[in-house]
Amino acid sequence: MKDVRLELRNRYAINMLLMFVFSALLLVLFAVGQEPVSERVQAAVLWIVILFSAAIGLGRAFISEEERGTVLLLQLNTRGSMVYAGKLFYNFLLIFCLNLVAVGAFVVFLNVNIRLPGLLLLTLFLGALGLAGATTLLSAIIARTASRGPLLPVLLFPLLFPLLLSVIGSTRSAFPNGLGWSAAVDELLALTGFAGVVISASVLLFDYVWQD
């Protein structure tokens, strides 16, 4: 949708997110120092960084519409579900690129080696889908509140526990000491289900948030 083109034009969100990811990773790097980090901690740090940058960056989706005053136009011209689909697609692309960059930076900085790139890629894909599904509806919600910005993490994090545990589990499976595909199937199924349920619930509930 037009969001992607707009984003390509001014690159505000993507630049901000990339800077956030890099600085967070560098902080982790300096904090950890030379110590080798266990795989569980590696996976946990990676996803915590991703979650926080998502919580910061993705909240913009609907607030920017309110600020530019385009909400009314969209409400009149398009159906709610179309708006939702557009925002979801944009958020998903954003978070997926972010995941790829974060993993790349992770590999370089923390000397992580990945045994099963395919599994990791699938995990990143499904994780991004679930994350985008959850944040899109919530960012529509916070665009309706008075305080806006800082509210998104508060609303988002309690919902993400199942997602976080599953992605960490299947990320670990992709590492050298991990258990590989067979162990990750459960987690991948849970991720698929999470993304599916979150997105379908959002589609059903979106109209109530969108219309005045």
């Binding site: 959850a134 509806l137 919530l138 919600i141 609303l155 309690p158 919902l159 199942p162 999470f194 349920v197 979150v198 619930a201 959002s202 509930l205 109530y208 948030v209």
Partner: peptide, 9 residues
């Protein structure tokens, strides 16, 4: 909306 959304997760 938020209550229901949280309920399904």
């Amino acid at each position: 909306v938020y209550n229901l959304f949280a309920f399904v997760t």
